[in-house]
């Protein structure tokens, strides 16, 4: 999992950095947010079997950097996620053109990603969305939220606020079909006054929102794109 982004710099800019630490962080952040949308896109849009899709997902990210595809990205022309999906489609089309059979990555360094878990989700993803663009976008949003949750978990651990996160997990993450549990029952379960439960939840949600926006800013090609994505994703005007 990628480290929590420390700055507000765009991933695109960071991938051009000569500082290996900045570069590694940017690469990790990019892969963490996009590997699942890329993998599902290969499985469902291009009908590529699991093993090939797994290799091609990894190869795609490495090629993206080796061939410096991101240098061609122009924030004025498209959103970064759209650009990335187009790069992916071009990458697969080229693979198909040069070989009757898709080549699987040769000397690629395997990335530590849960492809087996993703393979089990393919059926669910296929049943949820049929349009490839919508699917890519929705899976990207899901990855973004999942990353922000992980950032939040880490932040709570670092700041000795594990109870805050546990409350968030019970109230906001484990939402049953019948709706969230009551504050009263949470207060009983955690042996806290109700007012403290709501205070903790207010803090943790505020932090979640901040981390989500931080992740989003990192994954956008420009400030303008970030503002547009934030408005679309959360309905917020960010300054």
């Amino acid at each position: 999992m990628a480290a929590f982004p420390q700055t507000r710099t765009s991933v695109v800019r960071e991938l051009r950095s000569r500082d290996p630490e900045v570069y590694r962080r940017a690469f990790d952040g990019l892969v963490a947010a996009y590997w699942k949308p890329v993998y599902f896109h290969l499985r469902l849009r291009w009908d590529i079997p699991h093993a090939d899709a797994q290799d091609l997902t990894q190869e795609f990210f490495l090629r993206l950097l080796e061939k410096r595809y991101l240098d061609r990205y122009d924030p004025a022309r498209s959103r970064f996620r759209t650009f990335l999906r187009l790069c992916l489609d071009r990458f697969i089309a080229n693979q198909k053109k040069t070989s009757t059979r898709l080549k699987r990555g040769g000397n690629t360094v395997p990335l530590s990603l849960d492809f087996a878990g993703a393979d089990q989700e393919v059926g669910v993803v296929a049943s949820e969305y049929t349009d490839p663009e919508t699917r890519f976008h929705r899976e990207w949003v899901r990855s973004l939220f999942a990353l922000a949750v992980e950032d939040l978990r880490r932040r709570c651990e670092e700041t000795d606020k594990t109870t805050h996160f546990a409350l968030f997990q019970r109230y906001d993450l484990e939402t049953p079909d019948s709706g969230p549990v009551s504050y009263q029952s949470l207060a009983q379960a955690f042996d806290l006054p109700v007012s403290q439960v709501t205070n903790h939840l207010a803090w943790v949600r505020r932090e979640f929102r901040r981390l989500l926006l931080e992740r989003l800013r990192h994954l956008c090609g420009s400030e303008r794109e970030f503002r547009a994505e934030a408005k679309e994703l959360l309905g917020v005007e960010v300054t």
Partner: peptide
């Protein structure tokens, strides 16, 4: 995997 309803809930509470 975060279910859609959880993503929607998080979007709302944030």
């Amino acid at each position: 995997r975060l279910p859609d309803r959880t993503v929607e809930h998080l979007r709302r509470v944030s």
